[in-house]
């Protein structure tokens, strides 16, 4: 039995993509205004905002248009937990695109976070409880003959 499969051919046809990544059907613009207000709030009161883009009526080109307009910033991180989550700072400081996927790569949610650091990037205090124990275990495994904690 042949277990081979044909390789993914490259995208078969050329497309004339309009500059900016796609057509804007109107809703993306409203989001940008909302982002602007959120940024002002962040600056004046420090209050963070999250916008769930997945729950908005985007047309086929809206999201591409929006993300192209926001651009790409300096920070990009991927979190592997229940599938990949990508965190991308946009070209606008303080505006983050957080893209949650499940293990099969299907998108669970797409958030715009207007904040200094997205919460999901920070080390979780709840897990700090087990940090020392985990390290001890690993130390033990790494030390021939076993080892006791230094303290």
């Amino acid at each position: 039995m042949s277990a081979t499969m044909s390789g993914l051919p490259s995208i078969p046809v050329q497309v004339e993509t309009p500059a900016g990544g796609g057509a804007c059907h109107g809703n993306a613009l409203a989001i940008l205004h909302e982002v602007r207000h959120a940024l002002e709030r962040l600056i004046s009161t420090g209050e963070a905002t999250r916008i769930d883009l997945h729950a908005l009526p985007f047309g086929a080109g809206d999201e591409a248009w929006l993300t192209a307009l926001l651009g790409t910033g300096e920070v990009r991180a991927t979190i592997e937990a229940l599938g990949p989550t990508s965190v991308q700072e946009t070209a606008i400081p303080g505006v983050w695109l957080v893209d949650y996927h499940n293990a099969e790569g299907q998108r669970l949610a797409l958030h715009l976070e207007i904040t200094c650091i997205p919460g999901i990037l920070r080390t979780q205090c709840r897990e700090l409880d087990t940090a020392v124990a985990t390290l001890d275990t690993r130390l033990g495994a790494a030390t021939p003959g076993g080892s006791r904690p230094l303290s």
């Binding site: 979190i79 669970l108 897990e127």
Partner: peptide, 25 residues
């Protein structure tokens, strides 16, 4: 083996699924 971040992500997805605002996470 699901981490705290995984749990938070699950909550984010749940909020999105329940059509609740992200502030409810």
């Amino acid at each position: 083996g699901v981490s705290r971040r995984g749990f938070l992500k699950f909550c984010a997805a749940t909020a999105s699924m329940m059509a609740l605002p992200p502030a409810m996470i």
